[in-house]
Amino acid sequence: MNDMHRDEPHELRSAIRDVLTGAVADGFTPSAVCAIARDGRRIEPVAIGDAVRYGANGNELAPAERVGASSATVYDLASITKVFTAVTILTLVRDGVLGLDEPVFGRLAAFAPGRRAGAKRVITARHLLTHTSGLPAEWEDAPGGRLLDRAGTLGRPGMLERLAGSELEADPGSRSIYSCVGYNVLMHLAEQITGIEWSRPVHDRLLAPLRRDDPTSAALTYFPDPENCAATEYQPDRGMVRGAVHDETAWALGGAAGNAGLFSTAGALLSFGEWLRTGMGGLLPPQLQDELWRDQLPHVLDPQASRPDYGQGLGLRIGHLAWAGRSGSEARSHGGFTGTSLLVDRTRRLTVVLLTNRVHPSRDTDVRPLHAAVAELAASG
């Protein structure tokens, strides 16, 4: 029995290595790093491919010039950042300075004006956390164009006011549409409450307590050393992006945003996932922890609103099988546009992290099937 138990991680790592090697060979991503914990036992990460395969001008590098991926490679987490945003917001609820069902317009002067100001006045933090506010998916200043104030004519405060003034596309509670705008409104709200720019509350309220409980999470940061990072996309106005956030809105806001901006190694993100799975060291009281995990959609959507085929907690998606695999109906997960995913399953005592830089050098591939396949292996291996 003991010999079999010792062989299980080896067999699982071998199976995952085969899947990741095939994905890299087939061009779905230049690199991938997977880290898994089962029953609290961490399995040594598997790293495949090149963290940097294309140079500053977007051209493919000679093999000798490439940077191989390893367990120490730092990846742009993209929208997995939203889970950290959600937990940080819940610490404000914990402290009694924000109500989950408190209308946001009372805290943000720029929030209510617009054609549908009356509808916006009922939007709460719960709506924003569950993507049911009716705000648009992406931040657009004009039809077809995002407001990217790179020249600094508005400054960050002006940009946030413009963001808060985004017009609704639907009434609150009438639909479930994934919204980066909503999560940046949450960031703006937190800054108004705390008087501190976003990266500091996230660090003080979440990353520092996590690091005290588990020092292996230290690689989680908004501002990594670019030399340690996997490259992402080649963009004509930015060159090859490496060590700076890929998401255009987060980049325009200075790198640390509510929708994106965090970087991590696979191991550090696994530490967060396990911390989340096991109660976060009491960071949140039991009632708020339950809210984080509970499917909110039956309570925030109008009865006539159509529901997606997955649930939505406060930040975490529930049973999102496109990422979590066929057996992941009870899993909480989140993916990132750069090709990253975090899965936490309390029922199966399982945490799975898969980090890729599939947008390197361009955003032409879909790696969701790869994430689902790895989740299936982790659950059954």
Rank of each mutant, 00 (worst) to 15 (best):
M4V: 12
A117W: 14
G279I: 00
P136E: 07
R6Y: 04
H371W: 11
L210P: 12
S341M: 15
D247P: 05
F223P: 11
D3T: 10
A256N: 06
V52Y: 12
D50E: 15
T351V: 11
A250S: 08
T216Q: 15
H320D: 07
G195N: 03
Y222P: 13
V33Q: 09
L283M: 07
D171E: 09
R307D: 07
G134R: 09
S133Y: 03
D309Y: 11
G165R: 08
L270G: 00
V359N: 05
L342P: 10
H5A: 13
G258V: 01
H131K: 14
K120T: 06
P113G: 10
A257D: 00
E376F: 04
G328A: 02
T356E: 07
P45R: 09
A260H: 13
M280D: 01
R205C: 11
F263W: 11
R17N: 06
A231V: 02
F105I: 11
P308G: 09
L163H: 02
T278E: 13
R175V: 03
D225V: 14
P172L: 04
L370M: 05
G313T: 03
A218H: 13
A372M: 08
I43L: 04
M159Y: 02
G328Y: 02
P201F: 03
L108C: 08
D18V: 10
S333C: 13
N357W: 15
P215G: 09
R175C: 13
D141W: 00
I89L: 14
R200Q: 11
W293Y: 04
T365G: 03
C180I: 02
A256H: 05
R42M: 02
S271F: 03
M4N: 12
W139M: 15
D290I: 15
G114D: 09
A119M: 12
H246G: 00
E161T: 14
R175Y: 04
A244F: 09
K120F: 14
R348A: 13
G273Y: 09
H203D: 12
R115A: 12
A164F: 03
P143R: 00
T130E: 01
A257T: 01
Q304D: 14
P286F: 01
V181S: 00
M240E: 02
L12Y: 09
G335V: 08
A69P: 02
E8Q: 05
A170D: 06
F263K: 09
G328Q: 06
Q192L: 13
A257H: 03
Y234Q: 06
S14H: 14
S217F: 05
G195W: 04
R277I: 01
G96N: 13
S79M: 13
